[in-house]
Computed example of a mutant assay.
Amino acid sequence: MTESLIPTRVVDGVELPAAGTWRIDPGHAEVAFVGRHFMLTKVRGRFTAVDGAVEVAEDPADSRISVTIEMASVNSGDQARDDHLRSADFFDVESNPVATFVSTGVHWEGNGGSMTGDLTIKGVTKPVTLTVDYLGYAQDPWDNHRAVFSARGRINREDWGLTWNMPLAKGGLLVSREIDLELEVELIHAG
């Protein structure tokens, strides 16, 4: 194996992906969200159409990521809820078909860290910080080099104009303002 094809390297005693471009594998990427219904029950959903790339830098803290999410791909396991999420009450996918995340800073230590970036939903851009873990490397049966990451964070959906709600008779709201984000991503080394 030539030096340019080595898919990992050791940085400060930890094995990390090699510097270069790593593409998100859409078939093995999940951008999920968890909210509360009646302020009690967890409701989970995910976006099934996710694309993007990570530019892994020699210094992991200089790495960058850019992601595009097709908002119509939302799937929460309930067609009526998904249709409502796609409507103007929430994502308004007819006018805003994609959301994007572009990193603005990375803090990396060992095999994890945090990433800050600009999340744009419905034309509104706000900063978000995610906790990120590098889970490891694998070579698949077709000789693709894969790096696997997990990330999580919490946002207030109202910061992006996602304000639809209904008050409950005994107080509280039908849908929580705080939404947990959970990401599981496989990247394929592209050079």
Rank of each mutant, 00 (worst) to 15 (best):
M1T: 14
T2F: 12
T2K: 12
E3P: 11
S4T: 14
I6S: 08
I6A: 07
T8I: 05
V11H: 09
V11K: 00
V11S: 11
D12E: 10
G13Y: 09
G13M: 09
G13T: 13
V14W: 09
V14L: 01
V14F: 08
E15S: 02
E15W: 07
G20Q: 01
T21S: 13
W22G: 00
I24C: 00
P26C: 05
P26G: 01
G27E: 04
H28S: 02
E30K: 15
E30L: 15
E30D: 14
V31F: 15
V31C: 06
V31M: 10
F33M: 03
V34W: 07
G35H: 11
H37L: 07
M39P: 02
T41D: 05
V43T: 02
R44E: 12
R46I: 10
T48Y: 03
T48F: 06
A49L: 13
V50C: 04
V50I: 07
V50Q: 03
A53C: 04
V56K: 00
E58H: 06
D59M: 02
D62Q: 12
I65S: 06
V67W: 01
A72P: 06
S73P: 02
N75T: 09
S76Q: 04
G77L: 04
G77N: 04
Q79R: 14
R81D: 00
R81C: 00
D83G: 07
L85V: 05
A88E: 12
F90H: 05
F90E: 02
V93H: 03
E94L: 08
F101D: 09
S103R: 04
G105P: 05
H107W: 07
W108K: 06
N111L: 07
G112T: 02
G112R: 14
G113E: 02
G113A: 05
S114Y: 10
L119R: 06
I121F: 08
G123L: 07
G123A: 04
T125Y: 14
K126N: 14
P127H: 04
V128A: 04
L130Y: 11
L130D: 09
T131P: 11
T131V: 09
V132S: 04
D133S: 13
D133R: 14
L135S: 07
Y137V: 12
Y137T: 08
A138W: 10
P141W: 06
W142F: 14
W142Y: 14
H145R: 02
R146Q: 08
A147D: 00
V148K: 14
F149A: 02
S150H: 12
A151Y: 15
A151V: 10
A151S: 14
R152F: 09
G153W: 12
I155T: 14
N156H: 13
E158A: 15
E158Q: 15
E158F: 12
W160S: 00
W160R: 01
N165L: 00
M166P: 03
K170E: 02
G172A: 12
L174Q: 09
L174T: 10
S176W: 06
S176I: 08
E178R: 13
I179A: 02
L181A: 02
L181M: 06
L183P: 07
V185I: 15
I188N: 03
I188S: 03
H189S: 13
H189E: 11
G191H: 01
